[in-house]
């Protein structure tokens, strides 16, 4: 019991403390690729600290939904973070909800965030909410179908079981179904975390914003919570993608050396994925909003092909 609680605390700390680092790494890397110096690696931590210490302005038109949103979003995202396997295949709380719970907890946060965007009554908030709900809705079938493909292979929707099923079969990612599902989920990752070519996290131009428009009215500690949640969500999705498809290091035993090895592998996997995301961001221009469905349709068909190839190649997919 005590051990369980301790594990939950450790994982919570990991998700809370590590997620800003990934965001910072992404930003720095992107700047370097574009031959800029960019912000320091630890800048997100400084931002959080600063924002948490600031006062805030609450729009006079807002209701109790506005202050409630950051708490719900933060709690839902952090809870989703406790359900996923990070450095060990056994996530501390994976038994109280599998991959469906993770997806729906993120959806709960998004639901409130979109309401928070509408609450102030400014046109930006509405614009952001509308776009966010649209993009997430059309990304959903691709996400679910790809998840289903992996879950069917593992015979479970429990994430720890899924990761364990993947441990043992080291060359499994070469199977077409796995590669296609990975490609589909990668596109979904880009869409869900609001990166180029779907959304531009750095923009403040109303025609192109999605996420930024929705949270325009938030300031101070509330903004800190929302930003932090966005980073945690990014980390959760990236971890999910890497650990389900490339379960290296998850099987390591309990010794200190093995733990260290797992942690190093975990960091390396996320760094590689972050590099891929940054490359996509650097090499592409943002799509028009109405071209996004085309991208997500491709993701959907990729995941459908992933599913089909589990039996298309006579059991060898």
């Amino acid at each position: 019991m005590i051990g369980q609680i301790a594990l939950v605390m450790v994982q919570a700390a990991l998700v809370l403390l590590f997620s800003p680092l990934i965001a910072g790494f992404g930003k720095t890397l992107k700047a370097r690729l574009q031959t800029r110096r960019g912000p320091a690696l630890l800048q997100p931590y400084r931002d959080l600290y600063k924002l948490l210490r600031k006062g805030m302005v609450i729009p006079e038109t807002a209701s109790w939904i506005f202050p409630a949103t950051p708490y719900v979003l933060f709690a839902a995202t952090l809870l989703a973070g406790l359900l996923i396997p990070t450095i060990s295949a056994q996530a501390p709380l994976s038994w109280i909800g599998g991959v469906l719970a993770v997806v729906y907890l993120l959806a709960l946060g998004r639901f409130f965030l979109a309401l928070g965007g509408l609450d102030a009554g400014s046109p930006f908030g509405g614009l952001g909410s509308s776009r966010e709900m649209t993009i997430s809705a059309i990304a959903e079938p691709a996400l679910m179908l790809a998840v289903f493909t992996v879950a069917l292979g593992a015979g479970s929707t429990n994430l720890s079981t899924m990761a364990q099923a993947a441990v043992g079969q080291s060359w499994r990612f070469l199977a077409p179904s796995q590669m296609l599902a990975f490609a589909a989920l990668f596109i979904v990752l880009i869409a869900e975390t609001g990166r180029i070519p779907v959304d531009n996290p750095a923009t403040h131009l109303e025609l192109t914003m999605t996420h930024e428009a929705m949270i325009l009215e938030y300031s101070g500690p509330y903004l800190a919570l929302i930003e932090w949640s966005a980073w945690m969500k990014q980390m959760i999705l990236m971890t999910l993608l890497m650990n389900v498809f490339f379960p290296y290091g998850l099987s390591a035993g309990g010794s200190a050396g093995a733990m260290l090895f797992s942690v190093i592998l975990f960091v390396a996997k996320l760094a590689i994925l972050a590099l891929a995301v940054v490359l996509v961001e650097t090499l592409n221009a943002k799509l028009r909003l109405f071209r996004v469905p085309e991208l997500l349709a491709v993701a959907f068909v990729l995941s459908a092909l992933a599913l089909i190839s589990t039996f298309l190649f006579g059991g060898r997919g």
């Binding site: 199977a175 077409p176 590669m179 990729l302 092909l305």
Partner: peptide, 16 residues
């Protein structure tokens, strides 16, 4: 067999 399956899948993806 693995490689052929994989390449066939890529061929299909390219078609799409």
């Amino acid at each position: 067999d693995r490689m052929i399956t994989l390449m066939a899948a890529l061929v299909l993806v390219l078609q799409i």
